[in-house]
């Protein structure tokens, strides 16, 4: 069920809201509007508990939407979740892998679940193992993989069906610097092939290095959106700074936190 009104947008969310019912209703996301163009690398930043993962889970059909609409690759994720799933790849926090399978088995299974024949899935698994440089470990069980290898395999599994949009929730959290750089290289390669990337991260340097545009969410609402350069320039102009601020400064300014003697503290308005 493709919607022509979302022409060109790889991801579009309008008034996205998520409430968790309970003793007290928790408003995790309070009205997010987003538009990510095809081919972009889009960074979605925010402090812990700001609503990043909740938003990603709604966009990827893993969480119901309280109100608002979300389209991925032109497909309404609430009305036609299976079609949306065919068009997106998902790699969530803490690489979701089955430790008892081998890397190759995991990719073949993923291919089969996306409708490939056994031989197609095997061929595709081979291609992806080459892409993420895991051919040598392909037939070892995943429980013996390092954190970096697991991340790369998770990325590969999200790419099995050649999705138009790839969602990555904190793809480098917990990785050592060398593994992080390897994942960045993979992401650039994937993006160069035309895949739109929507990633959340807590590492502002990562967003600065990889993302064409970013949005910062805080308290369930988008508080800044734009290219890293434009956001820095805007802060420099508004604060009358002598030099360009860093993306850290933009983030701290946007989320009402300030840096004091190396610590981050909240600012009470």
């Amino acid at each position: 069920m493709s919607d022509a009104t979302h022409n060109g947008a790889a991801v579009q969310a309008d008034g996205l809201v998520k409430h968790y019912a309970g003793k007290d209703v928790i408003e995790a996301v309070r009205g997010v509007d987003l538009r990510v163009e095809g081919g972009e690398v889009f960074g979605f930043l925010g402090p812990n508990g700001a609503g990043k993962s909740t938003t990603v889970k709604m966009l990827t059909t893993l969480l119901s939407i309280t109100s608002g609409t979300a389209f991925v690759a032109g497909v309404d994720v609430a009305r036609d979740p299976d079609e949306a799933r065919r068009r997106m790849g998902v790699a969530l926090q803490e690489a979701g892998l089955d430790p008892r399978q081998t890397g190759r088995e995991l990719l073949v299974l993923q291919g089969r679940l996306f409708g490939m024949s056994p031989s197609e899935a095997l061929t595709r698994a081979g291609e992806l193992l080459a892409l993420v440089e895991l051919e040598d470990s392909a037939d070892r069980r995943i429980k013996g993989y390092s954190g970096g290898m697991k991340r790369r395999l998770d990325l590969a599994s999200a790419l099995v069906h050649e999705p138009e949009v790839l969602f990555l929730d904190e793809p480098t959290t917990g990785l050592d610097p060398a593994s992080r750089l390897t994942v960045w290289d993979e992401l650039r390669r994937i993006n160069n092939r035309g895949t739109t990337i929507f990633l959340t991260t807590q590492y502002l340097e990562e967003a600065d290095q990889l993302c064409d545009r970013i949005a910062i969410i805080d308290g369930g609402l988008i508080v800044r959106e734009g290219t890293p350069a434009r956001l820095k320039a805007e802060l420099r102009e508004r604060r009358g700074l002598a030099s360009d601020p860093t993306l850290d400064d933009v983030f701290l300014d946007a989320t009402g936190r300030t840096r004091v003697a190396g610590d981050v503290q909240e600012v009470s308005a």
Binding site: R85, R86, V90, L92, G96, L97, D98, Q110, L113, F114
Partner: peptide, 16 residues
Amino acid sequence: EDIEGGYFDKLRATPI
């Protein structure tokens, strides 16, 4: 284990 490890979400994200 699948739920806690995140693989269950991986399965839910497939069009099956």
